[in-house]
Design a protein around this nucleic acid. Structure first.
Lengths: 144, 144
DNA sequence: ACATCAGTTGCAAAGATTCTCAACTGGATG
DNA sequence: CATCCAGTTGAGAATCTTTGCAACTGATGT
């Protein structure tokens, strides 16, 4: 299984191209996003950000997440009722299995499913821009 | 990949099957959903509900919407930043293809994909409680 | 019909997200 | 590098949504 290089996408360039200003708060938030492996929620990002610059406001975190989502730079996950959690969109696409009891998130990828999705979309006259597949699960009871 | 017509689904039966109680608040909310053409938000549903029984609480509206969403009985739309708005689904579970340009929602279902999902979950040691599959798409350009 | 009890409810309070607006700043221009 | 101004920010209010808990009630069995 190949693993996407965790290379930092050049968000600043992307954002400039989209006519968005590179401000100090945005730079900090982007750094946090590119250097994390998990799926932090807005509050977590906010806390990490304030350790670098404690003048950053929570509103700005939310505004930036919305901005990045619109630009397709990150993905938002609304796992069962809890607060939205975010993940950078660059690397290789993967889907999620969410443990409904613990909230744990497992990433997986199935080429077969991706293929089927393509087929379905095509048969309906569409091309897939992106997709979201989330399996809400519970640990299997071992038959012992 | 045909699908059900816009008939009133027998929600009560569906809910019972899912082991959910049919309470007075739920019945009222279901009536509102089945008899409306628009996409009301929670507050709107709450107002309509209180005209029938003014003891119903907003929490119950939200709880019921979450319940119905999990059961696949309704769809939730989050139009840019505003509150979530809801719309009844038609009958059994299905997945969604969303036209990113128009916001149109097409329902589909693929047994093959469902099967694959089960396999994946099982191989990771889980049982699926429910799932969500959304394809964000754009109309294919035949030529031009 | 009655008792029982786990699922539900209403309320209040907490939590999550967006909005308002005056002050500030990135980056374009000269 | 000084100026300018539309885009951006921080703070807090407003809005939207979930949650904790005691009281209540629908479904089941008798």
């Amino acid at each position: 299984m190949k693993h996407a290089m965790n290379q930092k996408p050049d968000y600043e360039k992307e954002l400039r191209k989209a006519g968005v200003r590179i401000t100090r708060p945005r730079r900090i938030i982007l750094d946090i996003l590119t250097s994390t492996e998990d799926h932090p929620d807005a509050m977590k990002i906010f806390h990490r950000a304030t350790q670098i610059d404690d003048s950053i406001s929570l509103s700005t975190v939310y505004r930036t997440m919305n901005l990045l989502e619109e630009l397709g730079a990150i993905h938002r996950h609304a796992f069962n009722g809890g607060p939205s959690r975010f993940e950078q969109a660059h690397g290789e696409h993967h889907d999620h299995l969410i443990d409904v009891d613990t909230g744990a998130v497992i990433e997986f990828k199935s080429d077969k499913i991706e293929k089927l999705q393509e087929e379905i979309a095509r048969s309906l006259g569409y091309d897939i821009v992106h997709h979201r597949l989330e399996l809400y699960c519970r640990k299997s009871e071992p038959s012992t």
